[in-house]
Nucleic acid binder design. Structure first.
Length: 565
RNA sequence: CGGGACGUAGCACAGCUUGGUAGUGCACUUGCUUCGGGAGCAAGGGGUCGCGUGUUCAAAUCACGUCGUCCCGACCA
């Protein structure tokens, strides 16, 4: 592409309404523009990058034998009511009505429609397996869009759905997708981790997330320093190795602890360390108010509690609800004598002679033991911490990294087939529900994550296969014929060899062109200037500081070598 | 949804306290000079001051409302 007369612009300053480096660099480089909160335009250069990412994913998908199709975004609301997900999505689904007042939604994900599509074909076990995918716009009304393209309300997703007759078939299909995802992200040169995750609103048997590692990531990844354990913190299990051999004291002691509400305050007041305490937190789910007890120095993992209770929603109970359940002010809840059900963390079950709230304002109880109350559940409900022992190898310790979810794979099982009646006949003429998997990648998030991971103070550093152009030819003075002629020769030559080449033939000063090419992150720059009088040009990698002086006749060779390394 | 901040030219901002002519830098147009890391000088073009209502002789400026954007939290594939 020749830059003169093409739609291209850059901004010299950051914009104020972008809160991430990737968002700002993408806006400044003229690749995207915000149209409203969490909704972006892709400008030609940005769209070119997006298409390169899509091309890699499409190539890997096609290699697995999956078939591409295209679904609508506008979907009758009833489809989600039937699958039972209308409620689950709640306000995050954009909904609207047609002129006859019939309710529609803008699809946030497409399991339901793919089930309907599959139903057109599926009759017999002989119809399997197959895998369908699309690149299509999704709509999710996020409460708080942020970080440029990371958390948006309208975005393109590559979503794929596998259909099999049984779990063994699903395992095969899943592995194929899993490998295709790894190949895709490897080709994009994203720094990523694969972690096990919560299945959330998707439901099903297994969820694994592909997480791009960056500081602005919204997910916490738990990684082991000695084995390959990797998990989203939401579902990271905690091992309880405590082995207390202390004698249980039989008498509970009531202690006056005026105004000491937090563990920190009570611990200080009683001169005991936090791990001698059990803290009791009250949660409100869509079903009940429930108490959750963890050791004083631990935190509750709400995802674990929600899954344990099979609830859809969970939040900390209001002060009124706490007072109603405990007959005490907030800060004095304990497991003894509560009217509501109690969940005890496994770690607490190993403790002896601990201290709990007395369910009486300003009082705590000492020397409490498990025998003193009846929990509804004893389960792993605490949050893993940095330095905890690895739940997989039980020898290493875990550390945290932040990640952006760029892909997610789900073993759905027969949940959707059952809800929507997708069945097939087996060889014995028996009906069975179809077994499904679903697999998503956010190309826009990949793009943003790549910028987060690859930039410097001058701009973006695109990986070779993602860059909008691989080579930029900068003509120092396009009015000098010998320069523009030489640039034109190189331009055609490199294009003939299959390179994506940008010719900066604008009537701008050299500094402007250099800065723009650095900003938009073209991996290799060829400068045609004064040295052309000696039949030489300059070649410089975006990440390099050294400039190579190369004879015109050796340019192609040098470019080829550069992209080999 | 709770708390907070901000809406003035394409971008970044000043002006608002104390009401009276709408400004600066970048970007844009023209001319001259300059020309290898975001040029200089000169002359220009571009703004319903987010929107509405009110107060006032007079509102970018004061009051109320509303919409939008951003931040913290809640929420979230």
């Amino acid at each position: 592409m020749k830059l003169k007369n093409s739609f291209f612009y850059t901004l010299r300053e950051n914009v104020k309404d972008e809160d991430s480096q990737s968002g700002n660099l993408l806006v400044r480089s003229g690749m995207i523009k915000k149209s409203s909160s969490g909704v972006y335009m892709y400008m030609p250069m940005g769209y070119k990058v997006l298409k390169k990412i899509e091309a890699i994913i499409r190539d890997e998908m096609d290699k697995t034998g999956a078939q591409e199709l295209l679904m609508p975004s506008l979907i009758p609301e009833d489809v989600y009511v039937q699958s039972g997900r209308r409620e689950g999505f709640g306000h995050s689904m954009f909904s609207l009505k047609d002129r006859f007042q019939k309710p529609f939604v803008l699809g946030p994900t497409h399991e339901e429609l793919f089930v309907m599509a599959a139903a057109s074909k599926v009759r017999s076990y002989k119809d399997f397996p197959f895998n369908l995918y699309q690149f299509q716009t999704k709509f999710r009304d996020e409460p708080r869009p942020r970080f440029g393209l990371i958390r948006v309300r309208e975005f393109i997703m590559k979503d794929a759905y596998s259909f099999d007759i049984d779990l063994e078939g699903l395992d095969v299909a899943y592995q194929k997708m899993f490998d295709a995802y790894k190949h895709s992200f490897d080709r994009m040169q994203i720094d990523y981790k694969i972690v096990t995750a919560d299945t959330g609103v998707m439901g099903g048997l297994l969820s694994e997330e592909f997480q791009a590692v960056t500081d602005i990531g919204e997910d916490v990844l738990v990684l082991c320093d000695s084995c390959d354990y990797a998990s989203n913190i939401e579902v990271a299990q905690c091992i309880t190795n405590e082995n207390t051999k202390v004698e249980e004291l039989k008498t509970i002691e009531r202690v006056d602890t005026p105004n000491a509400k937090t563990i920190e305050e009570v611990a200080k007041f009683m001169h005991e360390s936090a791990d001698k305490f059990v803290k009791t937190l009250l949660y409100k789910t869509d079903k009940e108010v429930i108490a959750v007890c963890v050791r004083g120095d631990a935190e509750v993992n709400e995802t674990k509690v929600r899954k344990l209770l099979n609830a859809n929603e969970i939040e900390l109970a209001s002060a009124e609800a706490v007072i109603a359940a405990t007959d005490a002010k907030v800060g004095f809840a304990g497991p003894i004598g509560l009217k509501i059900r109690v969940v005890i963390d496994k770690q607490v079950a190993t403790m002896k002679n601990f201290i709990v709230g007395a369910n009486t304002t300003d009082f705590h109880l000492k020397n409490v033991n498990m025998a003193d109350f009846k929990p509804a559940f004893v389960a792993d409900v605490r949050q893993i911490k940095v330095g905890d022992v690895c739940p997989k190898c039980n020898t290493g310790t875990v550390s945290f990294k932040k990640g952006i979810e760029i892909g997610n794979t789900f073993k759905l099982g027969d949940k959707y087939a059952k809800a929507l009646g997708l069945e097939y006949l087996d060889a014995n003429n028996q009906l069975h529900p179809v077994v499904m998997g679903s697999y998503g990648i956010g190309p826009g998030r990949c793009l943003a994550a790549l910028v987060e991971q690859n930039h410097d103070d001058k701009g973006i550093l695109w990986p070779r296969d993602i860059a909008p152009f691989q080579v930029a030819i900068v003509v120092i003075n396009s009015k000098v014929e010998i320069q523009s002629d030489a640039a034109a020769v190189l331009y055609s030559q490199l294009k003939e060899h299959g390179y994506d080449v940008l010719l900066d033939d604008r009537d701008e000063r050299a500094g402007v062109k250099f800065n723009d090419m650095d900003l938009i992150g073209i991996p290799l720059r060829i400068t045609v200037g004064k040295t052309i009088e000696n039949n030489q040009v300059e070649i410089k990698g975006r990440r390099d500081t050294e400039v190579m002086i190369v004879d015109m006749n050796d340019v192609y060779h040098t470019v080829r070598e550069f992209f080999k390394r």
